[in-house]
Measured scan of single mutants.
Amino acid sequence: MDTYKLILNGKTLKGETTTEAVDAATAEKVFKHAANEHGVHGHWTYDPETKTFTVTE
């Protein structure tokens, strides 16, 4: 398992979190669910070198 990071750049919610996942696709599902639960919808990017997802509203 690897550690993946999410950076939230929402209009009303900003922050960072991490998750352990077997691959980037699994981490993305976890992060998108969490972002949706917090009402953050926007443009997603992924940097494979740093294993970091970013969502920007």
Rank of each mutant, 00 (worst) to 15 (best):
K11T: 13
T56H: 08
M1C: 12
T3G: 04
D2Y: 14
K5F: 11
G39V: 04
D47C: 09
H33R: 15
T52P: 00
K14F: 11
W44V: 02
F31V: 01
A34V: 15
M1G: 08
K51Q: 05
L6R: 00
T3D: 04
T19K: 04
A35W: 06
K14P: 04
L6Q: 01
A35V: 10
A34S: 08
K32M: 10
T18R: 07
V55S: 01
A34Y: 15
T50K: 07
A25R: 10
E16L: 08
I7C: 06
G15P: 04
K14A: 07
T18A: 07
K51V: 02
E28C: 15
E16K: 07
K32E: 05
F31H: 00
K14S: 10
A21Q: 06
Y46M: 01
M1H: 09
T45G: 06
H38W: 15
H43L: 14
L13S: 09
E49C: 10
W44G: 00
A24F: 13
T3I: 13
V22E: 11
E20D: 10
M1L: 13
E28G: 06
V55M: 04
V40Y: 06
T50C: 05
E16Q: 09
L6T: 01
T18S: 11
T56N: 08
Y46S: 00
K5N: 05
A25W: 10
K11P: 10
A27S: 01
K5I: 12
Y46W: 04
L8T: 05
V22N: 09
L13K: 09
F53G: 00
G42K: 02
D2T: 14
T26E: 13
T18G: 04
N36V: 11
L8Y: 13
G42F: 04
T26L: 05
M1E: 06
V40K: 03
G39C: 06
T26P: 01
P48Q: 08
H38A: 15
E28V: 06
E16Y: 13
H33K: 15
E57R: 03
A24W: 12
E49M: 12
T52R: 02
T56V: 07
E37W: 09
I7W: 04
L13A: 08
T54A: 04
A25H: 09
E49S: 13
T52D: 00
I7A: 03
K32L: 10
P48D: 09
E16G: 06
E57S: 06
H33G: 09
G42V: 02
G15D: 07
E28P: 00
G15I: 15
T19A: 07
K51H: 07
A21E: 04
T18M: 09
D2I: 13
T3H: 06
H33V: 14
T50L: 07
L8I: 15
F31I: 01
V40W: 09
A34H: 15
E49F: 12
K51S: 03
L8N: 01
D23C: 05
H41A: 10
H38L: 15
K51F: 08
T18C: 11
T17W: 15
V40N: 03
V22F: 11
D47W: 05
T17L: 15
D47H: 06
V40Q: 03
H38F: 15
H33P: 02
T56E: 08
T12G: 09
T12H: 14
T12D: 11
G39H: 06
G15Q: 12
T17P: 03
T56C: 06
L13M: 14
T50W: 05
G15K: 14
V55P: 00
G10E: 03
E28W: 15
I7D: 02
D23K: 02
K29D: 07
H43P: 06
N9V: 13
T3C: 12
L13F: 15
T50A: 07
E37A: 13
Y46L: 02
T50I: 06
K32T: 05
T54D: 03
T45Y: 08
G10T: 14
K11V: 14
E49K: 11
L6D: 02
A27E: 00
G39R: 06
D47P: 00
A34W: 15
F31T: 00
A25L: 10
